[in-house]
Structures are given as structure tokens and as C-alpha cells.
Design a protein around this nucleic acid. Structure first.
Lengths: 429, 429
DNA sequence: TAAGTAGGTCACGAGGTCAC
DNA sequence: GTGACCTCGTGACCTACTTA
């Protein structure tokens, strides 16, 4: 029950011979960021491969736009950016348009909403260093390779094009940059954001006729309970798996992650996923029910069938207190990154590096939260204390996985899901 | 307080054993001119070392393109020029393209904007003497060395290859050439130009939570004031330092500077920097605030914490009147050169030479300003009178440096900053 | 032969276009 | 107004050629 102990899940050990699905996720570029939820239908020039992808992974290297996180088409006005932001910036400076923000001038600019506020989009363009002065004509010098590598490992969004003076200052503005980068990565990849869930259509899970429903009080046979459990896990697994994929995409955009050795990347993802997922789905949870990203709703009773009363109570208690902190989506993103970079996961090699990265993230989170509520460090402290709760909760969850590890033949599990939770697979050759 | 007296700063004395950072700045070629602010990513052939750097300094010899000031790659079409201008000129004469200027045909051609007006770029190419007739093939004769030296000391931009008829005229056109050379150097290196600052994102400095803000009137403890002062100097120093570097780059491109003995170069930079910096940042200053090149904004109250009411008032008064002269960026550049070549700085050896160089600069400035407003010598006189104000202002600033000289352990100061303001350093071996 | 440049090459990005 | 696609100018490198 002590939080500092490592997760009960089995260590990845020889990470080279296993976890093929997770590795695939890490190494392959996503078809498009969250293409699942929005069809922008990219067909950009594929020639923009600045890093040449020798940075431990990412073979095809998806390069995000510094402004909105969409797929960058090249280096425009001094900044790696997409066709959209390039065109928008060009029009803005050509016509010298004055924009105005209808809100507080702090809109988060991501692909999904980049057209909602021109003021904040243009502001972001400038913030990341777009400028007519920074245009680069002609062939790219060979050192672009080194530059992109170095750029990747730098823990900041500021492009190499902008004033070095900004780099001198390792303080607040760096933290804010880090916050923006991670917010963007989170908002692009997570589907449990306020925006995504506001228009959900509830869809309570009902058992099929083949599985007798326990509407009475007494008639619950052990057999029907077991069938229900299968049914519940089936649905749960198919909905957890996309979240794993998205976490991988998120992780790849957290500065420093792709520079870790691949074994460590795997361990962080494998042992961090659940804790992060709990944070994301907290807002989907009420006293009596839990809802997935697609509106599928499980009642508290159904949850208790899957797990047990003890876990469900612990889970509901966590979500209740976590929701009580009133953390914004952006902050949840930053917090997710902090959890991801937990240095003392079992089996980690380069603990030091992860520790220092987490340190930066924690500083950024502290800075962000304290800036928002200067009078009140309660939220920051609350988040920190939640890190322990999450470990405990995840440990409890892992216990219930034992049922799956025994009954894996009765549920069709996506490979990625099976791998991350150490569940045997069909083709165990 | 008398303007003719030397600055209270300690004289450089044995310049050989100290000021290593400043010397490094002087002697080393910049990775690229103002690469800090723009990533044109140069990696030209390094073999272009025409002067072989025996001119007192410049060991690696950055040679600017006569057309745009970018790093020259050699001698093309009779002119020391960069790959860009070489290719541009070749294409222009090959295709016999007729260009047109969308403005008044007087665009300043510097690296940052050389692609914005082909007409003015081509005009500049011709003006500096580019021609198909002037091509030089094959190995460079030994006399190149003498030529480069002579070329450097000549106070003109006109290349040695161009029509000698132009050289006969030592009057107005020479001043205009000097003006163009210095404008180019200034626009390339200074970040406080209109173009750079037009799209700044304001970023008011806020004290971190660890430093209690004095929002009330009475509760300002001496201790918190002191902490605030540290914080303010920290930010200021990290932003002043790049300006010092840029001034060195600027100075190296003012005709005659690199021919001075190194001790004199150091003294001019050391004692001239502040005055020049005040001129550059004047436009960033309003009645109530001051802004750095990256948008970081200090309130008048914060300035008064750093310095005192007297200095802040003097500074604001200077900026107010200086801004009232409505001097253009190019003219600020020329004025900066005039201030740089102040002959009566403490410790100067070759006063005569500096005097004669400053004389030329003053003539050029007068010529330039009077040409612009023929009916009105007020601006010229205004500038001249500002030279005294600047000395007084700098003297007042130096007094406040005493605080830093005592508290240097509490602020992390860049070596260059520490050196130019005589602040003790960690490794005082 | 060695040093050094004109001209060619082609990866790239600015700016324009137009269906949406 | 937006952004996928297009055209064309740009300039980092390269080769061929010139001259000491």
C-alpha cells in the first residue's frame, strides 16, 4: 500500500522480444493526429522529415505544427508549421488585420479549434516565433539535422528561430512554454476533455438476452456473474485500447520522451497508463455511474461486478476528490505528463534523466497552478498528494487483472491492451 | 556630472589580462550575423579569408556581403558577396528580368529583407559594383591581402573594383555610402528596430510567489524589496547581454573600428554601450513602463525598485525627448556609431584617430538629417545635445551598478555583462 | 597543382489560387 | 476566411573551368 513501491505488474524484462504492439505505436507515425475524431484529410508533401528520425524511434516522424499541433508541412516564417497556420499568418501580415479575442485572450490553439479565435491564433503564431524576418529561402543547410535533434531534446517550444535572449531566461516563460506544448499535446490526443464530452449521448450498457440480467436481488448465479464480467471487460477493453494509443501519441510530444531509451519509454507507458487514465476519466464518473468516451455508461453495480466493492469505492473516492480540485483540461495534461515521468517505476534504466524531466514538469505545473490561484497552494498540494492515491488505485486495479489473465480466452482483447496489461495472447509461440 | 569628464566606471587599465569575454566577442566571428534572431542557417565555404585577419583582431574573419551584409562566400562578379546575392545577380542578368519597386525605390537591403524587393536588391548589386565584366577567375593574386586591408580602412562601402570615378568624389555620395553601410550594420544587429518590435507580445514581469509582491502601501519590508531587486536585475542582465554582443558585431562593421588597437576597441565598447543602449531602447519606453526586446515589460514602479526615482525620471525624460526627435532606425544606427567613437573616453590611446573617424560620422549624420529636413536643423542639433544627456544618464546608471558590484553573488550574471560593468566574477583567479 | 569562382542543380519555402 | 495544392524564386552545394 506504500506508494513508493513499484507497481505489482510484472516488469517488462526483456523489452526487446516483447511488446511489439506498443513498440509499433511508439515507432509509427499516427495516420494523422486524432484523425479518428476529425477528417481534415491531409495529403501534404511528405518531404518534410527534418530530424531524419534517428532519435531512438519515430521512423516516419510526424512533425507537429508549433502553432496548432497539426501536421507541419515545412518551415514557414521561421517556424515549423502546417499549411493552415502558414496561410493564416501570411494573410494576417499582408492585410495587417487587427483581431480581437471575444474571451480573455488565452484561448488554447489546437487543430480542432484553431479557427475559433483569430486573435489567439495570431498571438500564438508570434509567440512561437513566426515573423517575416525569419523566413528561410532556398535549400536547407545540412546542419538542419543536428538542429532538429537538439530541438527535440530541448524542453521548450520556442523555436530555434527566436531570440536567444528568451533562452537565457530559464524561468517562468520556459515553464509557460512547456505548459503550452503539453497542453497542446493533451488537447490533441485526449478525448476526455470538456469539449469532447459535452455533447455525449448517454448509452447505458445493457447485457444481451443471452446473459441473464440480475434485476432481482437473490437470483445471481455465479455463472451469470461470470458471463457479465466477460461482457463488461469486452466493452471496457475495446474502449481502453484507443486511450493507450492516444497516450503514446501524447507521450511522443512531451519534450524529452522520445530521447529516452526505448525500454524506458515502454516501462513508463506500461506502468503509467492506468494512473493517467484514471485522471482523464475522473470527470466521467459520478456517485453512481461511469461513462466512456463514446457515451457507454456503466452503473456502479456493473463496476462492482467487474471489480469489487472495495476497488469501486476507492475509485469513486479518488474521482470525487480529484474533481473537487477543479483542474482544467490543460492542467490535467500537464499532470499526466508528470505522472508519465515517474522515475521509480520498476525496471527503469535511466532514472536520473526521467527524474530531471519530471522535475521540470513539476515546476511548470506548480508555476501554472500557483499563477492561477496565487493565494492558494491547495490545488498544487492536492495534485501532488493525488500522485500517491493513483499508485495505490492502480495497484488495486492490477489485482483485478488477474481474472483477465486467467480468462483471456473468453474475451477478445486487442493486442495493445493485452500487452500493456501482461495478458497472454493467442499466438504465444 | 559634467559631461566632459570621463565615466565613473573604472578604466580598463591592463586590457590584456582582463575582459576575456569582450575580447572573445570582438575576435570571434559570429556564428552568423544576428543568427540569434533569425535562422538562415549559413554554412558557407569557410575558405573565404581575404584579409587573413592580421588587422589587429578578427581571427576567423567574418566578411560581410557588400549587398546585404550576410556572410560572404567569396568574390562574385567583382564584389565580395554571399551565395544568395551571387545567385540573384546571375539570374537577373541571365534572364534579363525587369524588376519594379512597389515603394519608393529606396528599400534598405539587408539579409533579413533582401528578398522583399528585387528591384532594390538588384539596384544595390549594381551600386556596389557587381558586373559581368568584373569577374575574377582563378587563384587570387597575392596583392589581395594589401587590398583587403586598405579596403577595410577606407571609410566607404564602394568596392575597390568599381568605377574609380566614384572615388574621386569625396563629398556627399561618400557620406551617403557611409550612412548605408552603418544602416545595414545597425539593422542587421539591433533588435530594437520598428520592424522587430511591431508584433511584440507584452509580458509584464511578475514576481514569483517566493517574492512577496508589494501591493499594499506600507508593507514593503526591506528584505522583500531586496529580493525584488535581485529578480529584476536577473532579468535585466540576461536581456542586456545579447545587446552587448550585438553592439560588438555592429562595431566591427563600422568602418575603421577593427583597425583601432584592441585596447581602444574595448574602451569604446565598454564605455559607450550604455549610452547607445539607451538610444535603442528609448522607443520601448512610455511614461509608465519599459519593455525589453522579447516583450518583457517592467512597470515604472519596478524600475524605481531597481534604480531610484531620480534615475527613472531622468531616463524617462531622456526617452521622451529623444522620441520627440522622431529619428528613424537608420539614423539611430548612425547616431550609435557617432557615440561609439567618442574620442575622450577614459584611457583611450589613439584619440586622434577616433576623433577623425567620429568626425566623418558626424558629417554623415548631419548630411543625412539635413537632407531629410532641409528647412530644419533642429533634429541635428537635438541629436548633438542628446550626446551630453546620454553621458550624464550613463553616469547615473553606473552609480546603481554599485549595488550589483556588492551583491553579485545573489544574481547569476552572464560573464559578458559582468565584464562590461566591472562586476566581480566567481572564478576571479 | 592548388586556389578560387561562374554557373548549374534542386531541395525548399513564399505567395497565389480556388473549391469549400 | 480557410487550407491543400501549385508555381516559381531562392540559395547551399557541386562541378567545371580559370589563373597564379
Amino acid at each position: 500500500m506504500e506508494a513508493s513501491s513499484s507497481s505489482p505488474s510484472s516488469p517488462p524484462g526483456n523489452a526487446d522480444s516483447t511488446f511489439t504492439s506498443v513498440k509499433q505505436e511508439i515507432n509509427s507515425t499516427p495516420s494523422s493526429p486524432s484523425e479518428t475524431s476529425s477528417p481534415t484529410g491531409h495529403k501534404n508533401k511528405e518531404h518534410y522529415v527534418p530530424a531524419d528520425s534517428n532519435s531512438s524511434s519515430t521512423t516516419k516522424s510526424f512533425v507537429p505544427c508549433k502553432v496548432c499541433g497539426d501536421k507541419a508541412s515545412g518551415y514557414h516564417y521561421g517556424v515549423t508549421s502546417c499549411e493552415g497556420c502558414k496561410g493564416f499568418f501570411r494573410r494576417s501580415i499582408q492585410k495587417q488585420i487587427e483581431y480581437r479575442c471575444l474571451r480573455d485572450g488565452k484561448c488554447l490553439v489546437i487543430r480542432l479549434n484553431r479557427n475559433r479565435c483569430q486573435y489567439c491564433r495570431f498571438k500564438k503564431c508570434l509567440a512561437v516565433g513566426m515573423s517575416r524576418d525569419s523566413v528561410r529561402y532556398g535549400r536547407v543547410p545540412k546542419r538542419s539535422r543536428e538542429r532538429s535533434i537538439e530541438e527535440n531534446s530541448r524542453v521548450t517550444t520556442s523555436d530555434e528561430a527566436d531570440q536567444s535572449s528568451r533562452d537565457v531566461d530559464a524561468g517562468p516563460s520556459q515553464y509557460h512554454n512547456l505548459f503550452l506544448t503539453i497542453s497542446q499535446a493533451h488537447m490533441t490526443n485526449c478525448v476526455y476533455t470538456d469539449e469532447h464530452i459535452q455533447n455525449l449521448i448517454e448509452n447505458p450498457l445493457v447485457f444481451p438476452p443471452s446473459i441473464p440480467e440480475e434485476n432481482g436481488a437473490a437470483s445471481s448465479t455465479a455463472e451469470s456473474i461470470d458471463k457479465q464480467r466477460c461482457w463488461l471487460w469486452q466493452h471496457t477493453a475495446s474502449r481502453i485500447t484507443p486511450s493507450i494509443q492516444r497516450l503514446v501519441e501524447f507521450a511522443k510530444r512531451v519534450p524529452g520522451f522520445t530521447e529516452l531509451q526505448q525500454d524506458d519509454q515502454l516501462i513508463l507507458l506500461k506502468l503509467g497508463f492506468l494512473e493517467i487514465w484514471f485522471c482523464h476519466v475522473a470527470k466521467m464518473t459520478t456517485e453512481t455511474s461511469f461513462m466512456f468516451e463514446d457515451g457507454l455508461k456503466l452503473s456502479k453495480q456493473q463496476l462492482e461486478i467487474m471489480y469489487d466493492v472495495d476497488f469501486v469505492n476507492a475509485f469513486l473516492e479518488f474521482t470525487r476528490t480529484f474533481n473537487g480540485l477543479h483542474v482544467s483540461d490543460e492542467e490535467i495534461g500537464l499532470f499526466s505528463a508528470v505522472i508519465l515521468f515517474t522515475p521509480d517505476r520498476f525496471g527503469i534504466n535511466d532514472k536520473k534523466k526521467i527524474e530531471s524531466l519530471q522535475d521540470k514538469l513539476i515546476q511548470a505545473m506548480k508555476f501554472q497552478v500557483v499563477r492561477k490561484f496565487p493565494e492558494d497552494t491547495k490545488i498544487y498540494m492536492g495534485l501532488v498528494s493525488k500522485m500517491n492515491d493513483l499508485r495505490v488505485l492502480a495497484a488495486k486495479f492490477f489485482v483485478h487483472l488477474e481474472w483477465l489473465q486467467e480468462n483471456w480466452t473468453r474475451v477478445t482483447l486487442p493486442p495493445l491492451f493485452a500487452e500493456i496489461f501482461d495478458i497472454p495472447k493467442e499466438d504465444a509461440q
